[in-house]
Nucleic acid binder design. Sequence first.
DNA 1: TTCACGCTGTGTAATATTTCACAATTAAAG
DNA 2: CTTTAATTGTGAAATATTACACAGCGTGAA
Lengths: 211, 211
Amino acid sequence: MNKLKQKISEKTIERLSIYRRYLKDLQKNGKDRVYSHELAQLVSGTAAQVRRDLMQVGSNGCSSKGYEVSMLIDEIAKLLDCSEKQNIALIGVGNLGRALLGYFSGSRENYDIVALFDNAPDKCGRVICGKRCYSMNQLTEIVKEQKISTAILAVPAEAAEETAQNLIDAGIKAILNFAPRHITTRSRVFIETLDMTKALEKAIYFSRKNT
Amino acid sequence: MNKLKQKISEKTIERLSIYRRYLKDLQKNGKDRVYSHELAQLVSGTAAQVRRDLMQVGSNGCSSKGYEVSMLIDEIAKLLDCSEKQNIALIGVGNLGRALLGYFSGSRENYDIVALFDNAPDKCGRVICGKRCYSMNQLTEIVKEQKISTAILAVPAEAAEETAQNLIDAGIKAILNFAPRHITTRSRVFIETLDMTKALEKAIYFSRKNT
DNA sequence: TTCACGCTGTGTAATATTTCACAATTAAAG
DNA sequence: CTTTAATTGTGAAATATTACACAGCGTGAA
Protein backbone atom coordinates (compact mmCIF):
# COMPACT_ATOMS: atom_id res chain seq x y z
CA MET A 1 0.00 0.00 0.00
CA ASN A 2 2.63 2.49 1.03
CA LYS A 3 4.98 2.69 -1.91
CA LEU A 4 8.18 2.63 0.04
CA LYS A 5 10.83 5.24 -0.52
CA GLN A 6 9.89 7.21 -3.49
CA LYS A 7 11.89 10.26 -2.63
CA ILE A 8 9.77 13.13 -1.34
CA SER A 9 10.49 16.55 -2.77
CA GLU A 10 11.70 19.48 -0.70
CA LYS A 11 8.59 21.40 -1.56
CA THR A 12 6.38 18.65 -0.23
CA ILE A 13 8.36 18.45 2.99
CA GLU A 14 7.92 22.18 3.46
CA ARG A 15 4.20 21.97 2.95
CA LEU A 16 3.89 19.04 5.31
CA SER A 17 5.52 21.11 8.01
CA ILE A 18 2.97 23.84 7.40
CA TYR A 19 0.04 21.45 7.37
CA ARG A 20 1.11 19.98 10.65
CA ARG A 21 1.38 23.31 12.39
CA TYR A 22 -2.12 24.16 11.29
CA LEU A 23 -3.45 20.74 12.20
CA LYS A 24 -2.15 21.16 15.71
CA ASP A 25 -4.06 24.41 15.94
CA LEU A 26 -7.19 22.68 14.74
CA GLN A 27 -6.70 19.99 17.31
CA LYS A 28 -6.38 22.58 20.04
CA ASN A 29 -9.65 24.06 18.89
CA GLY A 30 -11.38 20.73 19.02
CA LYS A 31 -11.79 20.19 15.29
CA ASP A 32 -11.12 16.55 14.45
CA ARG A 33 -11.62 16.39 10.70
CA VAL A 34 -10.28 18.48 7.87
CA TYR A 35 -10.73 18.64 4.09
CA SER A 36 -7.98 18.94 1.53
CA HIS A 37 -9.32 22.25 0.29
CA GLU A 38 -9.02 23.71 3.78
CA LEU A 39 -5.36 22.81 3.94
CA ALA A 40 -4.89 24.08 0.42
CA GLN A 41 -5.65 27.65 1.45
CA LEU A 42 -2.71 27.57 3.84
CA VAL A 43 -0.18 27.19 1.11
CA SER A 44 -2.04 29.03 -1.62
CA GLY A 45 -2.31 25.73 -3.42
CA THR A 46 -4.99 23.46 -4.74
CA ALA A 47 -6.82 20.66 -3.01
CA ALA A 48 -5.32 18.20 -5.45
CA GLN A 49 -1.85 19.21 -4.44
CA VAL A 50 -2.64 18.70 -0.79
CA ARG A 51 -4.03 15.26 -1.50
CA ARG A 52 -0.89 14.37 -3.42
CA ASP A 53 1.26 15.54 -0.53
CA LEU A 54 -0.77 13.54 1.94
CA MET A 55 -0.67 10.43 -0.21
CA GLN A 56 3.07 10.42 0.24
CA VAL A 57 2.76 10.14 3.98
CA GLY A 58 0.38 7.23 3.55
CA SER A 59 -2.81 9.19 3.71
CA ASN A 60 -6.01 7.86 5.07
CA GLY A 61 -8.58 10.28 3.82
CA CYS A 62 -12.15 9.25 3.90
CA SER A 63 -14.48 10.15 1.09
CA SER A 64 -16.84 12.91 2.04
CA LYS A 65 -15.53 13.14 5.60
CA GLY A 66 -12.05 14.33 4.78
CA TYR A 67 -9.03 13.51 6.89
CA GLU A 68 -8.86 12.76 10.57
CA VAL A 69 -6.78 15.48 12.19
CA SER A 70 -5.06 13.42 14.85
CA MET A 71 -4.17 10.65 12.44
CA LEU A 72 -2.73 13.12 9.96
CA ILE A 73 -0.59 14.67 12.66
CA ASP A 74 0.74 11.24 13.57
CA GLU A 75 1.44 10.27 10.00
CA ILE A 76 3.26 13.50 9.27
CA ALA A 77 5.25 13.15 12.49
CA LYS A 78 6.21 9.62 11.52
CA LEU A 79 7.68 11.00 8.34
CA LEU A 80 9.21 14.29 9.48
CA ASP A 81 10.37 13.50 12.98
CA CYS A 82 13.06 11.28 14.27
CA SER A 83 12.19 8.95 17.11
CA GLU A 84 14.45 10.71 19.57
CA LYS A 85 14.55 14.44 20.12
CA GLN A 86 17.06 16.20 17.89
CA ASN A 87 19.78 18.33 19.40
CA ILE A 88 20.54 21.59 17.66
CA ALA A 89 23.50 23.92 17.95
CA LEU A 90 23.33 27.65 17.45
CA ILE A 91 26.47 29.19 16.02
CA GLY A 92 26.91 32.90 16.54
CA VAL A 93 25.31 34.59 19.53
CA GLY A 94 24.96 38.13 18.24
CA ASN A 95 21.70 40.03 18.03
CA LEU A 96 20.24 37.71 15.45
CA GLY A 97 21.50 34.60 17.19
CA ARG A 98 19.92 35.59 20.48
CA ALA A 99 16.64 36.37 18.78
CA LEU A 100 16.69 32.97 17.12
CA LEU A 101 17.48 31.36 20.45
CA GLY A 102 14.37 32.90 21.91
CA TYR A 103 12.36 32.06 18.84
CA PHE A 104 13.24 28.39 18.82
CA SER A 105 13.26 27.86 22.55
CA GLY A 106 10.18 26.65 24.27
CA SER A 107 7.51 24.21 23.41
CA ARG A 108 9.16 22.28 20.66
CA GLU A 109 8.59 18.61 21.05
CA ASN A 110 11.06 17.11 18.69
CA TYR A 111 14.06 19.35 18.67
CA ASP A 112 15.85 21.73 20.96
CA ILE A 113 18.81 24.05 20.92
CA VAL A 114 21.23 22.51 23.38
CA ALA A 115 24.47 24.39 22.81
CA LEU A 116 25.66 27.80 21.69
CA PHE A 117 28.97 28.60 20.06
CA ASP A 118 30.70 31.93 19.76
CA ASN A 119 34.28 33.00 19.90
CA ALA A 120 33.72 36.34 21.63
CA PRO A 121 35.38 36.04 25.03
CA ASP A 122 32.51 37.81 26.76
CA LYS A 123 30.14 35.12 25.56
CA CYS A 124 31.80 31.77 25.63
CA GLY A 125 31.72 30.18 29.02
CA ARG A 126 28.54 32.01 29.92
CA VAL A 127 25.02 30.69 30.05
CA ILE A 128 22.61 32.62 27.82
CA CYS A 129 18.88 32.03 28.00
CA GLY A 130 19.58 28.84 29.85
CA LYS A 131 22.00 27.45 27.29
CA ARG A 132 25.75 27.19 27.69
CA CYS A 133 27.95 28.99 25.21
CA TYR A 134 31.14 27.27 24.07
CA SER A 135 34.04 28.48 21.99
CA MET A 136 34.33 27.21 18.45
CA ASN A 137 37.32 25.04 19.19
CA GLN A 138 35.15 22.89 21.41
CA LEU A 139 32.81 22.27 18.49
CA THR A 140 33.77 18.75 17.52
CA GLU A 141 33.88 17.61 21.09
CA ILE A 142 30.43 18.95 22.01
CA VAL A 143 28.81 17.86 18.75
CA LYS A 144 29.90 14.30 19.48
CA GLU A 145 29.06 14.45 23.15
CA GLN A 146 25.56 15.84 22.66
CA LYS A 147 24.88 14.01 19.40
CA ILE A 148 24.08 17.26 17.60
CA SER A 149 22.85 16.68 14.07
CA THR A 150 21.84 20.13 12.91
CA ALA A 151 23.23 23.65 13.30
CA ILE A 152 21.73 27.10 12.97
CA LEU A 153 24.33 29.41 11.52
CA ALA A 154 23.98 33.05 12.53
CA VAL A 155 27.47 34.43 12.09
CA PRO A 156 28.50 37.45 9.99
CA ALA A 157 28.66 36.91 6.25
CA GLU A 158 32.46 36.99 6.17
CA ALA A 159 32.69 34.08 8.61
CA ALA A 160 29.92 31.97 7.15
CA GLU A 161 31.82 29.78 4.74
CA GLU A 162 34.67 28.94 7.05
CA THR A 163 32.33 28.26 9.93
CA ALA A 164 30.13 26.07 7.78
CA GLN A 165 33.16 24.01 6.83
CA ASN A 166 34.03 23.63 10.50
CA LEU A 167 30.51 22.41 11.17
CA ILE A 168 30.73 19.88 8.38
CA ASP A 169 34.09 18.67 9.62
CA ALA A 170 32.63 18.28 13.09
CA GLY A 171 30.02 15.90 11.76
CA ILE A 172 26.96 18.14 11.46
CA LYS A 173 24.45 16.77 8.96
CA ALA A 174 22.36 19.84 8.18
CA ILE A 175 22.82 23.60 8.42
CA LEU A 176 20.19 26.29 8.56
CA ASN A 177 22.12 29.29 7.35
CA PHE A 178 21.05 32.85 8.10
CA ALA A 179 24.17 34.51 6.77
CA PRO A 180 23.72 36.24 3.43
CA ARG A 181 26.05 33.85 1.64
CA HIS A 182 25.20 30.82 -0.34
CA ILE A 183 27.41 28.08 0.93
CA THR A 184 28.75 25.49 -1.43
CA THR A 185 30.12 22.17 -0.40
CA ARG A 186 30.91 18.89 -2.05
CA SER A 187 29.84 16.93 1.00
CA ARG A 188 26.40 15.40 1.43
CA VAL A 189 25.44 17.83 4.15
CA PHE A 190 22.09 19.55 3.65
CA ILE A 191 22.27 23.32 3.67
CA GLU A 192 19.20 25.51 3.77
CA THR A 193 19.87 29.20 3.44
CA LEU A 194 17.34 31.70 4.71
CA ASP A 195 18.56 34.75 2.92
CA MET A 196 16.78 37.70 4.49
CA THR A 197 18.37 40.29 2.26
CA LYS A 198 17.38 38.39 -0.84
CA ALA A 199 13.85 38.06 0.49
CA LEU A 200 13.55 41.76 1.23
CA GLU A 201 14.92 42.81 -2.14
CA LYS A 202 12.47 40.43 -3.76
CA ALA A 203 9.59 41.90 -1.79
CA ILE A 204 10.62 45.41 -2.75
CA TYR A 205 10.82 44.41 -6.39
CA PHE A 206 7.36 42.90 -6.43
CA SER A 207 5.90 45.77 -4.44
CA ARG A 208 6.10 47.68 -7.70
CA LYS A 209 5.16 44.92 -10.11
CA ASN A 210 1.91 43.72 -8.55
CA THR A 211 -0.18 46.76 -9.27
CA MET B 1 17.01 44.86 -28.21
CA ASN B 2 15.52 44.56 -24.76
CA LYS B 3 12.36 42.52 -25.19
CA LEU B 4 10.15 44.63 -23.02
CA LYS B 5 8.13 43.16 -20.23
CA GLN B 6 8.26 39.47 -20.48
CA LYS B 7 7.52 38.76 -16.86
CA ILE B 8 10.56 37.68 -14.87
CA SER B 9 10.10 34.74 -12.53
CA GLU B 10 10.48 34.95 -8.77
CA LYS B 11 13.34 32.51 -8.91
CA THR B 12 15.23 34.66 -11.36
CA ILE B 13 14.69 37.77 -9.24
CA GLU B 14 16.10 35.90 -6.24
CA ARG B 15 19.16 34.82 -8.14
CA LEU B 16 19.74 38.30 -9.50
CA SER B 17 19.81 39.60 -5.96
CA ILE B 18 22.42 37.02 -5.10
CA TYR B 19 24.50 37.70 -8.18
CA ARG B 20 24.54 41.37 -7.41
CA ARG B 21 25.72 40.92 -3.85
CA TYR B 22 28.60 38.80 -5.10
CA LEU B 23 29.39 41.18 -7.92
CA LYS B 24 29.74 44.01 -5.44
CA ASP B 25 32.24 41.92 -3.52
CA LEU B 26 34.16 41.28 -6.70
CA GLN B 27 34.18 44.95 -7.45
CA LYS B 28 35.54 45.71 -4.00
CA ASN B 29 38.32 43.22 -4.66
CA GLY B 30 39.22 44.86 -7.95
CA LYS B 31 37.96 42.13 -10.26
CA ASP B 32 36.26 43.69 -13.25
CA ARG B 33 35.14 40.71 -15.32
CA VAL B 34 33.27 37.56 -14.44
CA TYR B 35 32.18 34.39 -16.24
CA SER B 36 28.77 32.81 -16.09
CA HIS B 37 30.19 29.63 -14.60
CA GLU B 38 31.63 31.61 -11.70
CA LEU B 39 28.25 33.06 -10.86
CA ALA B 40 26.69 29.62 -11.31
CA GLN B 41 28.56 28.25 -8.32
CA LEU B 42 26.89 30.79 -6.09
CA VAL B 43 23.46 29.40 -6.65
CA SER B 44 24.44 25.78 -7.22
CA GLY B 45 23.23 26.19 -10.74
CA THR B 46 24.60 25.90 -14.24
CA ALA B 47 26.31 28.47 -16.40
CA ALA B 48 23.44 28.29 -18.86
CA GLN B 49 20.98 29.24 -16.17
CA VAL B 50 23.04 32.25 -15.21
CA ARG B 51 23.24 33.37 -18.82
CA ARG B 52 19.48 33.05 -19.15
CA ASP B 53 18.98 35.12 -16.02
CA LEU B 54 21.36 37.78 -17.26
CA MET B 55 19.72 37.88 -20.68
CA GLN B 56 16.57 39.05 -18.98
CA VAL B 57 18.29 42.11 -17.59
CA GLY B 58 19.60 42.92 -21.05
CA SER B 59 22.93 41.26 -20.66
CA ASN B 60 26.04 42.40 -22.41
CA GLY B 61 28.37 39.49 -22.09
CA CYS B 62 31.34 39.36 -24.30
CA SER B 63 32.50 36.15 -25.91
CA SER B 64 35.57 34.76 -24.22
CA LYS B 65 35.87 37.70 -21.81
CA GLY B 66 32.69 37.13 -19.85
CA TYR B 67 30.66 39.92 -18.31
CA GLU B 68 31.84 43.29 -17.14
CA VAL B 69 31.21 43.47 -13.40
CA SER B 70 30.31 47.12 -13.12
CA MET B 71 27.96 46.99 -16.07
CA LEU B 72 26.20 43.93 -14.67
CA ILE B 73 25.71 45.65 -11.35
CA ASP B 74 24.17 48.61 -13.12
CA GLU B 75 21.89 46.49 -15.25
CA ILE B 76 20.67 44.46 -12.29
CA ALA B 77 20.10 47.64 -10.29
CA LYS B 78 18.10 49.09 -13.14
CA LEU B 79 15.82 46.10 -12.93
CA LEU B 80 15.62 45.48 -9.19
CA ASP B 81 15.82 48.93 -7.74
CA CYS B 82 13.44 51.79 -7.84
CA SER B 83 14.85 55.18 -8.77
CA GLU B 84 14.21 56.64 -5.34
CA LYS B 85 15.15 54.96 -2.08
CA GLN B 86 12.40 52.73 -0.72
CA ASN B 87 11.06 53.34 2.75
CA ILE B 88 10.38 50.26 4.84
CA ALA B 89 8.36 49.82 8.01
CA LEU B 90 9.13 47.26 10.68
CA ILE B 91 6.09 45.94 12.49
CA GLY B 92 6.74 44.32 15.85
CA VAL B 93 9.71 45.40 17.92
CA GLY B 94 10.29 42.28 19.99
CA ASN B 95 13.53 40.34 20.10
CA LEU B 96 13.27 39.28 16.50
CA GLY B 97 12.16 42.72 15.34
CA ARG B 98 15.09 44.41 17.00
CA ALA B 99 17.51 41.89 15.52
CA LEU B 100 16.06 42.53 12.08
CA LEU B 101 16.33 46.25 12.63
CA GLY B 102 20.02 45.86 13.29
CA TYR B 103 20.41 43.46 10.41
CA PHE B 104 18.81 45.72 7.83
CA SER B 105 20.16 48.99 9.12
CA GLY B 106 23.35 50.34 7.74
CA SER B 107 24.89 50.45 4.36
CA ARG B 108 21.86 49.73 2.22
CA GLU B 109 21.74 52.02 -0.75
CA ASN B 110 18.26 51.55 -2.02
CA TYR B 111 16.07 50.93 0.94
CA ASP B 112 15.93 51.79 4.60
CA ILE B 113 13.77 51.09 7.61
CA VAL B 114 12.25 54.43 8.45
CA ALA B 115 9.54 53.62 10.99
CA LEU B 116 8.78 51.04 13.66
CA PHE B 117 5.35 50.00 14.86
CA ASP B 118 4.42 48.27 18.06
CA ASN B 119 1.50 48.54 20.41
CA ALA B 120 3.44 47.90 23.61
CA PRO B 121 3.26 51.13 25.61
CA ASP B 122 6.89 50.89 26.66
CA LYS B 123 7.94 50.92 23.02
CA CYS B 124 5.74 53.27 21.07
CA GLY B 125 6.82 56.85 21.30
CA ARG B 126 10.41 55.84 21.90
CA VAL B 127 13.32 55.91 19.51
CA ILE B 128 14.99 52.53 19.07
CA CYS B 129 18.25 52.18 17.20
CA GLY B 130 17.68 55.60 15.78
CA LYS B 131 14.19 54.89 14.47
CA ARG B 132 10.97 56.19 15.94
CA CYS B 133 8.40 53.65 17.11
CA TYR B 134 4.73 54.42 16.49
CA SER B 135 1.58 52.72 17.67
CA MET B 136 -0.37 50.68 15.17
CA ASN B 137 -3.22 53.14 14.95
CA GLN B 138 -0.84 55.66 13.39
CA LEU B 139 -0.07 53.19 10.64
CA THR B 140 -2.09 54.61 7.76
CA GLU B 141 -1.00 58.13 8.56
CA ILE B 142 2.72 57.34 8.68
CA VAL B 143 2.65 55.04 5.67
CA LYS B 144 1.19 57.85 3.58
CA GLU B 145 3.44 60.50 5.07
CA GLN B 146 6.65 58.56 4.58
CA LYS B 147 5.58 56.87 1.34
CA ILE B 148 6.26 53.44 2.78
CA SER B 149 5.85 50.67 0.21
CA THR B 150 7.01 47.59 2.03
CA ALA B 151 6.70 46.21 5.56
CA ILE B 152 8.66 43.66 7.54
CA LEU B 153 6.25 41.76 9.75
CA ALA B 154 7.78 40.43 12.97
CA VAL B 155 4.80 40.04 15.25
CA PRO B 156 3.70 36.88 17.09
CA ALA B 157 1.92 34.25 15.02
CA GLU B 158 -1.45 34.98 16.55
CA ALA B 159 -1.33 38.60 15.46
CA ALA B 160 0.10 38.04 12.01
CA GLU B 161 -3.05 37.78 9.94
CA GLU B 162 -4.85 40.71 11.45
CA THR B 163 -1.75 42.88 11.31
CA ALA B 164 -1.14 41.94 7.70
CA GLN B 165 -4.65 43.01 6.84
CA ASN B 166 -4.06 46.33 8.55
CA LEU B 167 -0.93 46.79 6.50
CA ILE B 168 -2.78 46.05 3.30
CA ASP B 169 -5.53 48.46 4.24
CA ALA B 170 -2.95 51.11 4.94
CA GLY B 171 -1.65 50.83 1.40
CA ILE B 172 1.43 48.67 1.82
CA LYS B 173 2.38 46.94 -1.43
CA ALA B 174 4.59 44.11 -0.17
CA ILE B 175 5.10 42.27 3.10
CA LEU B 176 8.09 40.29 4.25
CA ASN B 177 6.53 38.05 6.87
CA PHE B 178 8.57 36.40 9.61
CA ALA B 179 5.63 35.05 11.55
CA PRO B 180 5.06 31.30 11.22
CA ARG B 181 1.76 31.77 9.43
CA HIS B 182 1.07 31.73 5.78
CA ILE B 183 -0.99 34.78 5.07
CA THR B 184 -3.69 34.67 2.48
CA THR B 185 -5.23 37.67 0.85
CA ARG B 186 -7.30 38.41 -2.19
CA SER B 187 -5.55 41.69 -2.78
CA ARG B 188 -2.67 42.13 -5.16
CA VAL B 189 -0.19 42.71 -2.37
CA PHE B 190 2.96 40.62 -2.59
CA ILE B 191 3.64 38.53 0.50
CA GLU B 192 6.89 36.70 1.05
CA THR B 193 6.96 34.51 4.11
CA LEU B 194 10.27 33.54 5.66
CA ASP B 195 9.12 30.63 7.74
CA MET B 196 11.98 29.82 10.09
CA THR B 197 10.24 26.93 11.77
CA LYS B 198 9.46 25.33 8.44
CA ALA B 199 13.06 25.82 7.37
CA LEU B 200 14.44 24.23 10.54
CA GLU B 201 12.11 21.25 10.35
CA LYS B 202 13.12 20.79 6.76
CA ALA B 203 16.79 20.90 7.67
CA ILE B 204 16.26 18.36 10.43
CA TYR B 205 14.39 16.08 8.05
CA PHE B 206 17.12 16.15 5.45
CA SER B 207 19.85 15.78 8.05
CA ARG B 208 18.78 12.15 8.17
CA LYS B 209 18.01 11.61 4.48
CA ASN B 210 21.30 12.75 3.01
CA THR B 211 23.24 9.84 4.48
C1' DT C 1 45.54 36.37 -41.98
C1' DT C 2 44.25 31.99 -40.16
C1' DC C 3 43.49 28.87 -36.59
C1' DA C 4 42.21 27.18 -32.09
C1' DC C 5 40.11 27.99 -27.95
C1' DG C 6 36.68 29.43 -24.77
C1' DC C 7 32.70 31.82 -23.80
C1' DT C 8 28.01 33.71 -24.81
C1' DG C 9 23.19 33.46 -26.44
C1' DT C 10 19.55 30.47 -27.33
C1' DG C 11 16.67 26.64 -29.59
C1' DT C 12 15.44 22.35 -27.93
C1' DA C 13 15.07 18.60 -24.73
C1' DA C 14 14.47 17.04 -20.21
C1' DT C 15 12.79 17.26 -15.76
C1' DA C 16 10.03 18.92 -11.94
C1' DT C 17 5.89 20.62 -10.25
C1' DT C 18 1.23 21.82 -10.45
C1' DT C 19 -3.37 21.52 -12.14
C1' DC C 20 -7.23 19.28 -14.37
C1' DA C 21 -10.65 16.00 -14.50
C1' DC C 22 -13.02 12.02 -13.31
C1' DA C 23 -13.99 7.30 -11.42
C1' DA C 24 -14.63 5.41 -6.97
C1' DT C 25 -16.27 5.86 -2.41
C1' DT C 26 -18.76 7.43 1.52
C1' DA C 27 -22.52 9.74 4.04
C1' DA C 28 -26.91 11.22 4.46
C1' DA C 29 -31.54 11.94 3.06
C1' DG C 30 -35.83 10.26 1.20
C1' DC D 1 -32.92 0.59 -0.99
C1' DT D 2 -32.02 4.45 -4.14
C1' DT D 3 -30.52 8.86 -5.02
C1' DT D 4 -27.82 12.91 -4.31
C1' DA D 5 -23.97 15.47 -2.98
C1' DA D 6 -19.42 15.80 -1.54
C1' DT D 7 -14.79 14.24 -1.18
C1' DT D 8 -10.70 11.30 -2.07
C1' DG D 9 -7.04 9.20 -5.01
C1' DT D 10 -4.82 9.46 -9.25
C1' DG D 11 -3.84 9.20 -14.48
C1' DA D 12 -2.99 12.49 -17.71
C1' DA D 13 -2.32 17.23 -19.31
C1' DA D 14 -0.34 21.58 -18.57
C1' DT D 15 2.97 24.54 -16.93
C1' DA D 16 7.32 26.01 -14.96
C1' DT D 17 12.03 25.39 -14.46
C1' DT D 18 16.40 23.62 -15.54
C1' DA D 19 19.89 21.46 -18.38
C1' DC D 20 21.89 20.23 -22.81
C1' DA D 21 24.15 21.29 -26.90
C1' DC D 22 25.83 23.95 -30.41
C1' DA D 23 26.30 27.94 -33.67
C1' DG D 24 28.62 32.15 -33.65
C1' DC D 25 31.77 35.44 -32.02
C1' DG D 26 35.92 37.62 -29.89
C1' DT D 27 40.61 36.89 -28.53
C1' DG D 28 45.19 35.74 -28.81
C1' DA D 29 48.83 33.19 -30.95
C1' DA D 30 51.44 31.88 -34.97
